[in-house]
Design a protein around this nucleic acid. Sequence first.
DNA 1: GCCTCTTGCGTGACTTTGTCACCGACACCG
DNA 2: CGGTGTCGGTGACAAAGTCACGCAAGAGGC
Lengths: 227, 227
Amino acid sequence: MSADGATRIEDWTERFQGTRALPRAVRDRLIRAARIVRIGKGTQVFGPDNVPDRLFFLYDGRIRVSQTSEGGREIVLYRVEAGDSCVLTTACMLAEEAYNAEGIAETDVTAVVLPKPDFDRLVAEEEPFRKFVFDAYSRRLIDMLRVVDDVAFGRIDVRLAERLLALAGDMKEVAATHQDLASELGTAREVISRVLADFQKRGLVQQSRGRITLADKAGLRALAESA
Amino acid sequence: MSADGATRIEDWTERFQGTRALPRAVRDRLIRAARIVRIGKGTQVFGPDNVPDRLFFLYDGRIRVSQTSEGGREIVLYRVEAGDSCVLTTACMLAEEAYNAEGIAETDVTAVVLPKPDFDRLVAEEEPFRKFVFDAYSRRLIDMLRVVDDVAFGRIDVRLAERLLALAGDMKEVAATHQDLASELGTAREVISRVLADFQKRGLVQQSRGRITLADKAGLRALAESA
DNA sequence: GCCTCTTGCGTGACTTTGTCACCGACACCG
DNA sequence: CGGTGTCGGTGACAAAGTCACGCAAGAGGC
């Protein structure tokens, strides 16, 4: 929100469900314990060789969490938006297990980083914070259920239509290469090319290099919902 | 383990990582608060129209958690074994959202059921228990990562070989129909039939109605690991 | 401008996986 | 012994993924 990039974050605890409801004293303690970090667009926030030992709360921006196969193919698992916490990192911290998911900053990101001891104390002592953390976990589990359902049982044309609409938001253009879209859905570039060619023939989209124009959103929505 | 079905469970808190480490007084309190339930093999433990409002700890037996698509196809997400807790139910309880996964008792099951208030208190007050719950969540998330990877990027012959070995354990037979195996992997019965026919031709397995004999486990393992 | 190089995209041929329709084989049961 | 339901086999086709190309649109250098 703050248009001025130099603005200090006065009270980030206002930003999160899990901290907003806490007593003033606790919030002040948190503000002292936490660090604010800014991460440039495109940076890897966490990954197989970059296991964080701290907790992550996303103040501003968006992180894309994806998984890469041995063969180099990629699939997007979910996105972490502002106001949410990044639980895959905590999952890993707590389980101390290997996983091959990674988080990429999709925009410039401002995050609150909390050392694990402070996190533990907070979870122990504060009910609202606990609820926040469990909610985040639940949301991710449910996201993953959706991904499994899509990948195992969904048609790619339907999934692509969905994803294009989601990526466009209110806009009517999506800036993405065919390869980008393939990585979104965990498929191959050629498949996307063919499906998009078909969409174009049907007047649903128009294409130019690295850019898809959604010419008929209603049509795409109809396709997306013909699940 | 107790061959005598009438045997009372003396101290189930010994059975779980998360409760074993607790002070005696807390454990006694828990034993008073919890109920022991026995569930017959094949029963649905939870599901879309069967949302639990209690916490589940698996004392004995095994629960298979699977997801079913609109088209009626099914895929196994993971299994909950004795000593573990069933977090999808808690995920749902906490998020109070709809999901279309279900849990089926794969064997006769003995479980400890803890009312939510007691669960909350335990999470708040006891560090070892908290760790136990978070671990369970992490494990599931990681299981799901694996499922996504398999479904999106894996070959079915490899996945089938893996699954056959896992289902057989130390035995060299698997009692499952082709349809059962298709539901394990989220594919169609015909696909399993064809792959098994191929396995048979290669001398890896032998088949009879509802029963697969793993004739060459080493060969299957080699195939499974040729990821 | 013009050349070159990278990156994005199109395409055809082929393999793998999933779908559909159908039928035969087996087991169980009266 | 004949019905009846489940299980598995099969062939033809559709959808999706793989492989090997080659062309073309920009970006940058000269």
